[in-house]
Design a protein around this nucleic acid. Structure first.
Lengths: 160, 160
DNA sequence: GCTCGAATGTTATATGATAACGTTTCGCCT
DNA sequence: AGGCGAAACGTTATCATATAACATTCGAGC
């Protein structure tokens, strides 16, 4: 028995369902928030979700560009901006790349584990980390707005 | 009386001494570690320390380039790589910029507060945050190697 | 069907970083 | 001192990431 919580998706999980669920969450979110999940935006989100590895903007561009006869960078960046604003994807600063938001919203700001071996990224929830940071910033009189927390290393599956 | 620890340098601190101290720390460190703090490297470090705001590579390049008749990007990036490896500067991922290392070495991995108002960056030490992260990663079976922790917001001085 | 704003297309360019290869410098060894 | 080898630096070119600016199209609501 393995007691480790599976934050990194298991190799043989049903990834089609994973994508499907992400897209449905997105549809629902946009409907509720009155946001327009257009074809391009939906497609970019879907492409991002095709793996648990972060996607690079220009890789997305290449795919999109093939699909619709020559798209240019702004097409992709605008879709990414929308998805970021909507909280449907996150940007991994240390990789200049984008990953689908895996958590329900309003869970504090995202924290990521990045495996150097398999290149997968896991979004984690860690209230204790949040509260430790909150204590520290308030002690220093700093009003935090945005947190970038990215931890790279080796995931449990790659270590095994 | 102000009870807040001054992680953001006070407006009227003696910044010349600040730079001086940083350069002396660097000299000492390089002497001890048998690293070569060449003229370019030392100058880049000095430029980075001319403020507590992060420096962009191409801004450094412009200055260096004026000083020595046309330097090219690799000149600056090589110096930055050296300084990063030596632990004398840190890279702020969320800004694509570089800041002098303000702490003695071997203090765990750096964490930064970034003020959106005055653009200054403060390097902080927060053992509780480190240990909260350690608990969480070990719970998840993740072997952390590198941490990127950057918190942006409003510093105490700008809030006042 | 018209209109206004949002979304997208298009062209150009800014910004950030590295590859590849030649030349110089510097510590070290004899 | 002279020479060797590695490290540092110079130079040119190019790749990678991101945005500005303006034209065109689309789509919901009147």
């Amino acid at each position: 028995m393995n007691s480790v919580e599976p934050v990194f998706a298991n190799c043989n999980h049903n990834h089609a369902a994973c994508i499907q669920a992400a897209l449905e969450r997105a549809e629902k979110h946009c409907r509720e928030q009155d946001l327009r999940l257009t074809a391009i935006r939906r497609r970019i989100l879907e492409l991002i979700w095709t793996s648990h590895r972060p996607s690079k903007a220009y890789d997305l561009l290449q795919t999109i560009s093939q699909e619709r006869g020559g798209a240019a960078p702004p097409t992709v960046y605008r879709a990414l901006d929308f998805l970021l604003d909507a909280g449907l994807v996150h940007r991994i600063e240390s990789l200049n790349a984008f990953i689908g938001c895996a958590e329900e919203h309003a869970h504090g700001q995202p924290k990521f584990l990045i495996c150097n071996e398999c290149a997968r990224v896991a979004e984690i929830v860690a209230p204790e980390v949040d509260s430790a940071i909150r204590r520290e910033t308030s002690r220093l009189g700093f009003a935090a707005i945005q947190k970038t927390i990215e931890i790279s290393g080796i995931c449990n599956q790659c270590a095994a």
